[in-house]
Amino acid sequence: MTWVTIGLSAASLLSIAIVLTTVLNWANRKFHVDVDPRVLKVIDALPGANCGGCGYVGCGEYAEAVVLEHEAVDRCTVGGQSCAQNIAAIMGIEIGEVLPYRPVVHCGAHYPDRLGRSEYRGEKRCAAANMVADVQACTYGCLGFGDCVRECRFDALHIVDGLATVDYEKCVGCGACAKVCPRNLITMTPFKAERMLAVTCSNKDKGREVMAVCRVGCIGCGACTRASELFHLENNLSTIDYDAYPEDCTAEMLRACEKCKRHRLVFVGKPSPEDLEKAEPLEAPEVIKPDFHTTVDDTEWRG
């Protein structure tokens, strides 16, 4: 390895580097693409869950829509108020208050409460069972086959004793469950507080018919409407006007809850301090068992 060889190696590497640098420099200037820096800043401000709750395919697409097409800045349901404020600051505009939307299941009947249940041998899907008569007597209520559970990508819905139940600590508010329920039981409700009052029934029939199909359905007696102005009866069903929902729970609302003979006025939301205290002595399971099954297992073709 003579000095000439070493010198030649160094010189050739250096000259190749210089040639490449020159060519790439020229190419960089010739092929320059202007990217609005605000797009990158908005992408940073977004949570990055790529859930599609805003209506766009991913956070990148929404960021470009906000910056280039003047899309509304409060479409991100996961980011909520703080994210909308950040994006508004980047875009240089002002926005009002943004409320988080969370799903409310308007049915409160578990398996024992439902009357007239018969054996269903079809595909274990709510969409399929909804088309067949007499799976259960109540044609408005939750079927419990779990279409919403399968749709949720954040493990926020579970079937508890036949009724779809929301875990509000995991829910991000993307709205997929509300879109997929074939009986339209789930509505996306603006949550002005951590726990909101909801009417957990969707049965629009008169009192006697309701009692024939369900042990806990709303009979449309109107006791809640007399206790508080928040409720009104629509189609024999008590309804809450969420636009007029107060920030703090009033005494009239609590009295309405007591007056309801069917106990359909329920507070839903993140666990309250009392619930957490009650759950403390309970033990959580240590072992998570894997659940190997495919969509084929849900179909029970009997030939």
């Binding site: 050739s12 590497l13 190749i16 580097a17 490449l20 060519v23 790439l24 190419a27 960089n28 092929f31």
Partner: peptide
């Protein structure tokens, strides 16, 4: 070393072209 120089340079070039 030289091959990596050359490949990296040409890939950068192609990337700039495709991006534009």
């Amino acid at each position: 070393i030289v091959y990596i120089f050359v490949i990296a340079g040409s890939v950068q070039f192609v990337e700039m072209y495709v991006r534009k």
